[in-house]
Amino acid sequence: MKTMKASSQLWIHGLIILYLLFLIFPLVWVFASSLKSTQELYSGLPTLLPQHITFEHYRSVINGQQIFRSMWNSLIVGVVSTLLVVSIAVPSAYAMVRYRSPINNVILGWILLSQIFPVILVMIPLYVLLRYAGLTDSLNGLTLIYIVWSLPFVLWMMHGYVKSIPLELEEAAVMDGASRSQVIIKVLFPLLLPAIGASALFAFISAWNEFFFALVLMKSPALATLQVELARYTGMEGQSRTGPLAAASVIATIPSMLVFIMMRKWFTTGLVSGALKG
């Protein structure tokens, strides 16, 4: 690789930049739109870069009740479901790795199998069930759904991480007279902390980005999540909202963008080694 010719290096950069033009252009375009004034947006001759940078659309998004409230709803549902799903998944993953029993294979098999079923099949009876329980059109109901929905993947991730921790560490602590709960809290937990962080970020983002469940379950406008609220804006009011919609899109993308960038090491190493080890 070191002996690669300068001309072929140039080719590779050129091709990557071609990809980037396609992948980044829509984002740049909308980010620029979010900074253009309303007159400029409808001037008929748009340019890529804004002529005068203005934050009016960001201001109107943050002051505008609806979008701000829907952001708050998404945040609450995301944080609560993440905390709960992680506190369920960590002890469960531990139990799956440290005890060998047929239940483990049933659970892992379920995680894979559940990928093939379209959400519509689960959603219909779930909707009926939640309606009985008075949990449709309620943030509690949505939180519950998100816990169940991200549980398989978080469990899968944690299972891989716990597996990678050598048993010898626990044995040593037991030799020193630690009880099992002490082993878990003092030995395992600190080692697992980065993994727990990664799984938590993942759970949060899947809740933050989710659309279908929220669309079906949340009927009152005051309870809409951010994704539902933004989708509604595109439907009804269309282009009169280009500016605020662009600003809201930028804001809505920032959390997952940060998470993806923080987790990129995990994507390129952890994911595949975990998948191959099974």
Binding site: L27, Q227, A231, T234, S249, M257
Partner: peptide, 14 residues
Amino acid sequence: LIPWATPPIIRGIL
């Protein structure tokens, strides 16, 4: 990574 990080609804809006 950024397009992948963009939520599906925002992809539609973009």
